[in-house]
Write a protein that binds this DNA or RNA. Structure first.
Lengths: 197, 197, 197, 197
DNA sequence: AATGAATGAGGATTCATTCAT
DNA sequence: GATGAATGAATCCTCATTCAT
C-alpha cells in the first residue's frame, strides 16, 4: 500500500502505479478470452471492456494490435520455457504443457500458422518467428531420439501438424484431437496441463 | 425513403447477360487469389475489383461473404472428388491432388480449420463440414490399409495435421512442408498437382 | 481480420468528454431540422454532418436510426407532458403546445402515423405507441367535456386527424391548417407555442 | 382471349404488344400491394418481381419512381371521379368510395400528405396537387350544405384529416377509424367500397 | 495514469438506372 | 418488347487510434 490512504470518492479509479501492472495483466487475460471466443481479429475495444479499463489504457500498454497478441503469446511461450527449464523435465512433459496451450489458446495456435494468412505485415508475424524459435529451443534440449522424429525441425513440424488437428468447440474436444494427432505421429505426450512450478 | 439518385454521365461496359457466367468465374478466380494473399477475411471490394466487375455483381452472384468462400472451396473439393472418381485412382494419387489444393488455396486450408477461429457462425462453417465430409468420402473409397492410419477418421485427422504444416510464403515451400508432414505420418503421396482428367 | 488502418496526419478537434452532452444535443437538434426537411428516412450521415460531428459520435449516442427518432420525439412528448403538468394547465392550453409541436416537428407528426407505412418494424414504431400513450395520458387529465369529443379515444383520434391536416411548406401555413382543423372539430385551442415554464 | 393460339415454349414470354398493357396493369397492381406492405419508399425491383416482369419493363412503362406512384394514384383518383360522375351520385356516396381508397391504398393516403415530408422534388409531389385538385373537383359538385363543412376547402381539409386518422395494421381497422373520424366531423358517409359501375 | 468521447477511413450492402442480347 | 445482368453512387455501420480532461 504505497498509496495515500486518503479515501477519494469521485475520480474513477486511479489507484496509482500499482494498478498499472494489474491492468496489464487484466488486459492480457481479457485478450486471451476474447481471442478464444472471437478469434485474433476481434475488436480491441472488446478486450478493453472485458478487462474493465478504458481504451486508452490498452494503448498505453500496447502500441498496437500486434503488441496485444504478442503479449498473450509471450505468456504461453514463457510457460513452455519454464516447463522445459524445470528440473527433471522430459520431452513428453514439455509437450504436455505445449499441448495444453495449443488446446487452450487460440492465439497460440495462430502463432504456428502466422505466415499462412499471407500479406499483412502485422508485427504479429514479426515476433512470431522469434517466439516460435524459443519454443523450438525449449524442445530441442530434450530431444532424445526415442521416437521417429529426426531432429528439431521434424519436431517443430510435428507441433505445427498437431496444431492443425486442434479444432473443435470445446477445449476437451481439442485435447482429444491433439492427443490423437500425437499418437499418429508416434510421439508420447505427458499430462496435458499448464505449467505450475 | 432512402433513394439512390445515381450519376448521369458515364456508364462503362455492359456486355449483357452473356457475361454473367464469365463474371462468376472471374469472381471465383479473383477470390482465390485474394484469399491466398490476404486471407479469408479480405475485403470483398478487393475481390470485385480484381475480377474487374462492380461490387453489385459480386452480390448478385453471392449473397454474402460465406457464399464466395464456399464457391471457391467447392471448386477445390470437386477436383478432389474427380481425382477420386477417375479410373485407376489410388489413395496416394488422390492425396497428391488434395495436397496440391492444400498448398495452393488458402481458402481450402481454412476449410479444415473453420471451427478454430471461434465465434461467428459464418455459414462458411455451415457448409464447411459438408464439404469436409465430401473430401472424407472421396478418400474413404481408396483406403487400403498399407499404412499406419486406422481408418477414415484417422485419415481426415492426418489431412488436418498436414494442413497445419502447410505454411510458408511460396507454394513450393508449402509443398515441401506438406510432403515432409506426410512423411512423418508414414503416408505415401503421389504427384502433387491439380487434377486434370 | 478486417482492420482499419486510419490516416496518420490530421486529427481535428477533440474537445474531450465535456463535449458529449453538447454533441448529443446538437445531434438531436440537427435531426429535428433534417427530419423537417427530408423526412424521417433521411440519411443519418447528414444529421451527423449538420451537427458538426463525426458519424461515429452519432452511433455512440444512438445505436440505430430508431434511437435518433425516439430521442427527437421524446423531447416533443416531454414538452407536452410538462405543459399538462404545469399548474393552471387547461386542455386548450395543452392542445396549443401539442399543436405547436405538430406544426414544428416532422418527426412528431410521424409519431401519430407510424403504423401506416406498413412493413418494417422499426423500433421507432415500438416506442411510438408508448410515446403516443404518454400524450394521451397528458391530455386525459384535462378532459372536461365542454366539447363534442366523447373521451380520451376521441381526443387522440382528433389529434391524429389534425396531424393529417398539417401539411404545407412553412410552419405558418401548417399552423393555419392545424387551427382550421381544430375548428372543424369544434375544439378550442390555446396559443400555439412551445412550452416554456 | 384475343391472343394467337399458337403455343410457344422457349423465349421467355414476349406475347406481343397485347402483353404490354397486361404488364402495365400487373405493375400497377404489384406496386399497390408493395406500397401497402412496405410504404412508398419500397424498392422498385420488388415491384417488378411481384409483377412477374423484368426491371426493364418497369422502366419502359414508367420513367422513374414517381411515375409508378402516379399511376397507382391515378387509378384511385379515377375511381373517385367515376363515382362522382355516376348518375344519382351523392356526396356521401362519393365519400364512401373515397374512404375505401383511403383505407386500401397506402399510396393514396400519401397523396394527401405528399408535401409534408418536405424537400425532395419527387415529381410525385408535382402531380400530387393536380390529382388532389381532381378529387376536390369531384367532391365539389356534390356539396349540398347539409353539414358543418363550409365549402370545398373545408371538405378537402376534412379529407386530409380523415386520412390522418387512417392508421392501423388491417384495412378493417383503418376503415373503423376512418368512419369514426367522419363521425367526429359530423359528416355522413355512404358504403365504404370501391366504385363499380 | 485512467477515462471514454471523438474522429473518420474503410468495408458492407443496397438499389436506381442502363443496356446488350 | 422483354429480360435480367451490370454499374456504381450512396448509405450504413464498425473500429483503430488519438486526445482533452
Amino acid at each position: 500500500m504505497t498509496q495515500h490512504p486518503t479515501a477519494e470518492e469521485r475520480r474513477p479509479a486511479n489507484d496509482g502505479p500499482k494498478a498499472a501492472a494489474r491492468n496489464r495483466a487484466a488486459l492480457i487475460a481479457a485478450a486471451r478470452e476474447i481471442y478464444a471466443e472471437h478469434g485474433l481479429g476481434a475488436p480491441l475495444s472488446g478486450i478493453a471492456r472485458r478487462a474493465g479499463v478504458g481504451q486508452g489504457v490498452l494503448y498505453r500498454h500496447f502500441p498496437d494490435r500486434a503488441a496485444v497478441a504478442n503479449a498473450v503469446l509471450e505468456e504461453n511461450v514463457r510457460e513452455v520455457e519454464q516447463a522445459a527449464a524445470a528440473s527433471g523435465a522430459t520431452l513428453s512433459g514439455v509437450l504436455g504443457v505445449l499441448t495444453w496451450h495449443l488446446t487452450e489458446s487460440a492465439a497460440f495456435i495462430g502463432l504456428l500458422h502466422a505466415d499462412r494468412t499471407g500479406g499483412r505485415a502485422d508485427g504479429v508475424h514479426a515476433h512470431a518467428s522469434a517466439l516460435s524459435e524459443r519454443v523450438a529451443r525449449s524442445l530441442r534440449g530434450h530431444l532424445t531420439g526415442g521416437h521417429r522424429l529426426g531432429g528439431s525441425d521434424d519436431l517443430m513440424l510435428a507441433v505445427a501438424m498437431v496444431s492443425g488437428a486442434v479444432t473443435g468447440p470445446t477445449r476437451e474436444e481439442r485435447e482429444r484431437r491433439a492427443l490423437a494427432a500425437w499418437r499418429l505421429l508416434g510421439v508420447k505426450v505427458g499430462a496435458v496441463r499448464p505449467f505450475a512450478g
